[in-house]
């Protein structure tokens, strides 16, 4: 299919429609993952069944209140992929699957770590499901512990300073592409048009799609509520979070960042406050190396991206 930038998205058309998720949730002020749900529903419309894995987004609805105007279900933390597979199976049996998007909206802990098996199984079977991982680089709901999406040297409550997290993050979009996802992409909430277009592209696929969307968490990243988007944007612009897509194992870079020095992004986030100069230089070197890999056609050799 064509480049994602060629997909049309007219914001004026969407503006007149009702919100499919209302306000009044328990989410923090400036919560990016909730914004992610909004963007997903703007992109895919009301014919969407959303499966949630346990996390902050589960608590957006608390009985008897719900903000959702679409069918929504929460199972457990590690089974987003398989609950969605079950729903798709049920819809197929009832012959209602033709016009419905089954979407999983799971956190990075539920995707990278505990829910990996269910996700890998779903992708292997090529189920027509869009799996969206809202990536705030930690287990935010339980109090900001390390997940395998946490970047190197970032502080979490289980990887305290002075070292922070000693391990680099996993590259889930690449792993899923190799597992057999027809469409696998990274996105950022700070580039909503890119994210929405990627969702619309994913909706046209016959097999599984995986979208890893960077969604800053204000208490986790230790930023002010109004700074979340800026923090996410700096992650993209410094090259720490590349925006790309892999369609049938064909890699395309969607966005060319300004390649600002990483220190700009790191300074802003409280979780990097403890970094030494040496660590900052190391992160910068990694970013430069990885970018050289992915821009010069050696994407599959890159370690982190």
């Amino acid at each position: 299919m064509a480049d994602v930038n060629e997909i049309k998205f007219d914001i004026k058309k969407e503006m007149v429609k009702d919100h499919l998720i209302t306000g009044g949730t328990f989410a923090c002020a400036g919560c990016n993952p909730v914004l992610g749900i909004r963007l997903v529903l703007v992109a895919l419309g009301k014919n969407t069944i959303m499966v949630n894995s346990s996390g902050c987004m589960t608590l957006t609805a608390t009985w008897p209140f719900t903000p959702y105007r679409i069918p929504w279900v929460h199972g457990a933390i590690e089974n987003g992929g398989s609950v969605a597979a079950g729903i798709l199976m049920g819809l197929k049996a009832l012959k209602k699957d033709s016009n419905t998007h089954v979407v999983v909206y799971a956190g990075d802990g539920a995707t990278y770590d505990i829910g990996f098996q269910a996700l890998a199984g779903m992708v292997y079977r090529k189920e027509k499901i869009i799996y969206i991982c809202y990536n705030n680089c930690q287990f935010a709901n339980t109090g900001h512990q390390r997940s395998s999406a946490t970047e190197k040297y970032a502080r979490t409550s289980t990887t305290p300073p002075p070292i922070g997290n000693p391990l680099p993050r996993k590259n889930m979009a690449k792993i899923m592409a190799l597992c057999g996802a027809e469409y696998s992409a990274t996105a950022s909430i700070t580039n909503p048009f890119d994210f929405i277009k990627k969702l619309r592209k994913a909706a046209t696929m016959k097999g599984s799609s995986f979208i890893d969307v960077l969604a800053p968490c204000e208490p986790g990243w230790v930023v002010e509520p109004w700074e979340t988007l800026k923090a996410g944007n700096l992650m993209v612009e410094t090259g720490m979070w590349p925006l790309y897509e892999i369609e049938n194992k064909k890699f395309t870079l969607n966005y060319k960042p300004k390649m600002l020095p990483v220190v700009k992004a790191l300074q802003m986030q409280g979780r990097y406050k403890h970094l030494t100069e040496q660590q900052v230089t190391e992160i910068q070197r990694t970013v430069i190396n990885e970018w050289e890999m992915i821009t010069k056609g050696r994407f599959w050799e890159a370690e982190e991206y």
Binding site: G24, A29, V34
Partner: peptide, 23 residues
């Protein structure tokens, strides 16, 4: 994030004070 904005008849955005968390 809180779906506080909606558009009035003139096409201008209006913030719903009931749900805006002031982010």
């Amino acid at each position: 994030p809180d779906s506080a904005y909606a558009f009035n008849k003139k096409g201008f955005p209006e913030c719903d004070g009931r749900v805006c968390k002031g982010c």
